[in-house]
Design a binder for these strands. Structure first.
Lengths: 168, 168
DNA sequence: TTTTTTGCAAACAGTTTGCAGCACA
DNA sequence: TGTGCTGCAAACTGTTTGCAAAAAA
C-alpha cells in the first residue's frame, strides 16, 4: 500500500491529513524497518520537535483500525512493545532471531494454503493473520554453539563457592 | 505434555514443586481454555485464597522459559494480556473470532511445511512458532451482516443533527 | 539447615483518556 | 466555521523487582 493510497483512504473516511500524520505516515512507509511506537516517536521528533508521544499512539491506532498497518510482536524480542509495518498485499511470516534480533520475512505458499484451509475448514472469514517464528539464525547458531562451549570448558563460577550470608 | 512430565522437568532443573505451583500447573493443564495471568490467578485463589498474583507471573515465566507452556496473544482480543497453554508436540494455529471471541485450533500440513521451509530456506533453527488468525467465525458472519443491515436501514443518529456547541 | 520460593509493596513499561486550545478542510 | 486533532497531565493495565519471612529438600 503506497503512501498516496493511504492518504486517499484517510480522506475518504473524513479524516484529516495533519502535519503530524504526514510525518508519521512517511516514517512508517519509508523505513522498511519494523518500528515500535517509541522509536517512531523519536524519529518523528527529529522532524517536529513538538510532536507528542500520544499523537503517535493515536495515529497508530487509527491506521490499525483502518487496516492500513499491521501490528507485530516479533515474539516480544526486546520487550512488550508492538511493531508496525504498512500492510502489503502479500501475506508473509516474520522470522526473528532471538539472539541478534534480525528479522527476516518469509513469503511462501504454505501461508496462502494455510489461510485458504482455514477459510474452507471453518467457514471462517480471515481479516488478520500473523505468523511469527523465533529461533536462531544461521549465523547465531554457530556463535551460540561456541558460547555454550566456552561456558562448559571454563565454568568460572557456575556454583560460586558458598559465600558468607550477606550481613544487613 | 502431561502434568507428570512437567513436574519431572521441574525436579530435573532443581526447581521445587510447591503447593502454589501444583495448583497453577493443574489449572493450566486441566482447563483446555486459554487462560491469562489474571484469570489463572482468580481460579488459583479459589483453591488457595492466600496465593499472590506475583507468584502466578513468576510461575508462568518459569514455565515459559522452560518451554513447558506457550504464550499467545490471541490477536489481543480482549486486551493486551497474554494467554497460556501447555505445549503440545503438534504445532497448531489459533483462529479467533473477533466478534464472539471463540478460539479454534487448526492443525494441518501447511504449518509443518511452513516450519520446514523456513528451516531450509534460511538455515534457521526454529524454537518458537506462533500463528494467530483473526476474523469472523461462520456464525458471526451472518450476525454481523444483519447488524450492518440494521444500521443501514435505521440510521438513528449517524450524523446527529448539529447540536449547539457545548457551553463550558 | 540451606537454598528456593513466597507475599507484600512499590516500581515500571507501554498505552490510553479527559480536556482545553489549535488547526485543517 | 466547525469538527477533528493535538498536547499536556494524569490515569490505567499488565507485569516486574527488592526484600524479609516462610517453606521445600
Amino acid at each position: 500500500m503506497t503512501l498516496e493510497s493511504i492518504q486517499g483512504s484517510l480522506k475518504q473516511r473524513g479524516l484529516r491529513l495533519t502535519r503530524q500524520r504526514q510525518i508519521l505516515l512517511e516514517l512508517i512507509d519509508q523505513t522498511g524497518a519494523h518500528l515500535d511506537a517509541e522509536r517512531l516517536f523519536q524519529l518523528a521528533k527529529e522532524r517536529d520537535p513538538k510532536i507528542n508521544r500520544v499523537t503517535v499512539y493515536r495515529t497508530l491506532k487509527m491506521l490499525k483500525t483502518g487496516g492500513l498497518v499491521d501490528e507485530l510482536d516479533l515474539m516480544h524480542y526486546g520487550g512488550d512493545q508492538h511493531y508496525y509495518e504498512t500492510r502489503v498485499k502479500q501475506e508473509h511470516a516474520h522470522v526473528i532471531c532471538l539472539r541478534c534480533g534480525r528479522v527476516e520475512e518469509f513469503f511462501g505458499e504454505p501461508l496462502q494454503r494455510l489461510r485458504h484451509q482455514i477459510e474452507t475448514h471453518f467457514g471462517f472469514e480471515v481479516l488478520l493473520a500473523r505468523t511469527e517464528i523465533g529461533g536462531y539464525c544461521a549465523h547465531c547458531q554457530t556463535l551460540r554453539a561456541r558460547e555454550l562451549d566456552e561456558l562448559r570448558n571454563a565454568p568460572p563460577e557456575v556454583k560460586p563457592a558458598r559465600r558468607p550470608a550477606r550481613r544487613k
